[in-house]
Design a protein around this nucleic acid. Structure first.
Length: 723
DNA sequence: TATATCGTTGTTTTT
DNA sequence: CAACGATATA
């Protein structure tokens, strides 16, 4: 009786094959984590492999933590010797040790997306790019892509199709050198530089010798640079085990390359391939829905998930008149579920975009349902938190000019944009940090009104830096608040002071928590953790509340009851994916992920009206994905008419109406019409619009920014152009 | 330099 | 609806 007898036949095969390249194609809910943890346990306990030799890479900290705990439950404290880490944490770890070879100091800071955008917009201003069509976010997207494809600013060739290539190139160059000057890395740098380190023969060999066995989870979501990193480390001993599911590849937009998993057998012709198809999570009906949908994807290699949980409830579908009604319906259903013995923590609401959480939050607050939103405007992105973190960043790494410029005038010290610019220019010309430039403010020639504030700022920060060596993170944190008077500043200047101060308290608690777990937590480590947290890292299955999150954030999780809301065309699939077959496939995979999160009960909801940008969008259609599921698996709950009456009676704010227009009676499609529903058009006066209906072949209804408009079809061509 | 007010514009998805 | 930027004014 060995450890692996706890697994089913296929899982056992996957876990027993320890040497050489292994590809585990693990369908949703097929016991992937179980297989991998038993595989590791088998390696250590039965194969005599040193746990130090094992590296397991996961996608989130939560997954890493869970894997470590589950291995520990089988093999005991030896589990602590295995390195289970995310790509980014692994990279940072390496870069703290060897980053000096690339010109970084070990206390480098990590910039998140907001920091990156700020830096880029500063650079754009400085070099005088004020093209309205060229937003920092766009340039950032280009830069990240180039970086991760290994293309430096010098190497951009005209063959790359990219608008404003010259501007991108100029910003890219400055951006990179600014990061280095600031002793900072962005998310891409962490991966790119890790890869660079592995190109240094001594380091590569050291790592290869350290980790004879490499495992990668969620391999379908690795990007090109992660692919390089993994394959470099594993190239010597070739003990590479990758686990994934091509049908769950949903991060294409950030560079994930589904080809990595599809081509594994080409990369390693001797790969041992195992498919895990028995699903332990969901009922038969839920799985059938998922299977039927995903088989429409060309990217799908084809697999057939099966389960012993025969039958099960049908998928419950509800058409709401308005998004408000949708959330009310969900609340009604939650109450029913509670009566049937479910608790709040069994229930999760999934949606395509973060903005959708809002209406549910309002409804849950009104009805007293406990809930928690994961992701979205994250804790660490809030203004007050970013301010305090910026102070800590600056103390950790005084070269960080970006963090400096964020807080130099917060609280107000009479230091304006002009003064900061002068300091920046001086710093650049003399090749020193901005912080150092402050100490030479007489040479810089700052306005005399700013001098006192600058001096004060400088003294405060350098005072804390001097002492920081012998202070804990929470002590440094206290010093920052006290010495800068930040709380007082909020009380005086900020009308949301109470909430912000509460958040700052919460930040302090989180520091305490971390220090409890790790006594010798350094400032640098703390900051690293805060920049690499994922939305669901702090999800605790024990807490009793309804969970709300995007489908992306739900990957790897499972819940007894799942509501997938906003199942409307233009929302899901996203309007941006409509015309691109590849993106549509990714949306479909996303839907597949959503469906396969559910264990027992699955709901689809959509609304025919919904407020978007403060305006109502009418006649929204149910998602095409719903039609891809066999109708006998779906139970339609309410006919729209019946519901409309009910809702109109209780709606506080009736939906806007245009004269003589009844959305319910309007003919939605007309095959003889030159226009079709959902088509995007442009109008001379009203701008962009979407065709909502063609009435009796006579009139066309178009939704514009300022609402619905009707035109006689005959005259439409004069004003309207198809896009 | 700091604030007030108006107008524009946008929304996928995230480590 | 917000968040952000540009412009005006103290």
């Amino acid at each position: 009786m060995g450890i692996l007898d706890n697994l089913n036949d296929m899982q056992k095969k996957a876990a027993a094959k320890v040497d050489g390249p292994v590809l585990i194609l693990a369908g949703a809910g097929s016991g992937k984590t179980r297989t991998v943890t038993y595989r590791i346990a088998h390696m250590v306990l039965e194969k005599g492999i040193s746990p130090y030799k094992i590296l397991a890479v996961t996608f989130t900290n939560k997954a890493a933590k869970e894997m470590k705990e589950r291995v520990e439950a089988i093999i005991g404290e030896d589990a602590g010797k295995i390195l289970v880490s995310t790509f980014h944490s692994f990279g940072v770890r390496l870069l703290r040790m060897y980053g000096s070879q690339l010109g970084y100091e070990p206390n480098f800071n990590i910039y998140d997306t907001d920091d990156q955008k700020k830096l880029i917009s500063d650079i754009m201003k400085r070099i005088g790019i004020n093209d309205k069509n060229l937003k920092p976010a766009t340039i950032l997207g280009n830069i990240s892509k180039l970086k991760e494809d290994g293309i430096g600013p010098e190497e951009i060739e005209t063959k790359f199709y990219m608008q404003n290539i010259k501007d991108v190139q100029a910003v890219y160059k400055k951006y990179n050198s600014a990061l280095i000057k600031n002793n900072a890395m962005d998310f891409s740098d962490i991966l790119v530089n890790t890869n660079k380190l592995l190109d240094i023969p001594e380091i590569r060999e050291r790592i290869q010798e350290r980790y004879h066995y490499v495992m990668v989870d969620e391999y379908q979501d690795t990007n090109n640079i992660q692919y390089k990193i993994v394959n470099k480390i594993a190239s010597k001993y070739r003990n590479l085990c990758v686990v994934g599911d091509e049908d769950q590849s949903i991060y294409g937009f950030r560079g994930a390359n589904i080809e990595n998993i599809l081509n594994f057998e080409k990369d390693y012709p001797d790969a041992y391939v195992v498919k895990l198809e028995q699903n332990y999570r969901s009922t038969e009906n839920i799985l059938k829905a998922a299977n039927n949908m995903i088989k429409l994807n060309e990217s799908s290699k084809g697999k057939n998930l099966w389960t012993e949980k025969n039958g099960g409830d049908l998928i419950n579908m509800y058409e709401a008149r308005h998004a408000r009604d949708e959330s009310n319906y969900v609340v009604d259903e939650i109450y029913k579920l509670l009566k049937k013995g479910k608790t709040y923590k069994d229930i999760t609401i999934l949606y395509r975009t973060n903005a959708q959480s809002r209406i549910f939050e309002e409804t849950f607050i009104r009805t007293g349902i406990p809930y928690k939103v994961f992701g979205g405007m994250q804790f660490y992105q809030r203004k007050e938190i970013k301010d305090v973190i910026a102070y800590l960043n600056l103390i950790n790494n005084p070269k960080d000019g970006l963090s400096l410029s964020r807080v130099i005038n917060i609280p107000k010290r009479k230091i304006g944009a002009k003064t900061i610019e002068k300091l920046q220019i001086f710093a650049e010309e003399n090749d020193i940090s901005v912080f150092e430039a402050i100490s030479k403010m007489d040479e810089v020639g700052v306005p005399s009104s700013a001098k006192l504030g600058l001096q004060h700022f400088y003294n405060t920060i350098s005072g804390i830096i001097e002492e920081s060596e012998c202070l804990s993170v929470s002590e440094i944190y206290d010093r920052v608040l006290k010495d800068t008077g930040y709380i007082k500043y909020l009380e005086i200047e900020d009308d949301k002071a109470d909430v912000r101060i509460e958040n700052i308290e919460e930040l302090k608690n989180s520091i305490y928590e971390m220090e409890k777990e790790e006594e010798s937590l350094t400032l640098s480590e703390y900051l690293e953790k805060t920049s690499l947290v994922a939305a669901t890292d702090d999800l605790d299955e024990g807490d009793n509340y309804v969970k709300l999150m995007t489908i992306h954030n739900s990957k790897g999780l499972e819940f007894p009851v799942v509501f997938i809301v906003g199942m409307e065309d233009e929302m899901f699939p996203s309007s941006r994916a409509e015309f691109d077959p590849k993106e549509l496939e990714e949306e479909r995979r996303l839907c597949y992920v959503a469906i396969t999160r559910a264990e027992e009960k699955l709901y689809f909801c959509y609304a025919t009206e919904r407020d978007i940008y403060g305006r109502t969008s009418y006649m929204r259609q149910k998602s095409r994905f719903i039609d891809e599921i066999p109708s006998h698996l779906i139970e339609m709950k309410n006919a729209v008419i019946e519901r409309v009456e009910k809702v109109e009676n209780k709606m506080a704010k009736p939906a806007e109406k245009i004269e003589n227009f009844n959305p319910l009676k309007a003919k939605v499609e007309d095959n003889n019409s030159p226009y079709s529903r959902g088509e995007k058009v442009s109008h001379k006066k009203f701008g962009l619009g979407i065709v909502r209906a063609v009435e009796d072949g006579q009139r066309i209804v178009i939704e514009f920014r300022e609402g619905l408009k009707k035109f006689p079809l005959m005259a439409a061509d004069k004003f309207i152009t198809k896009l």
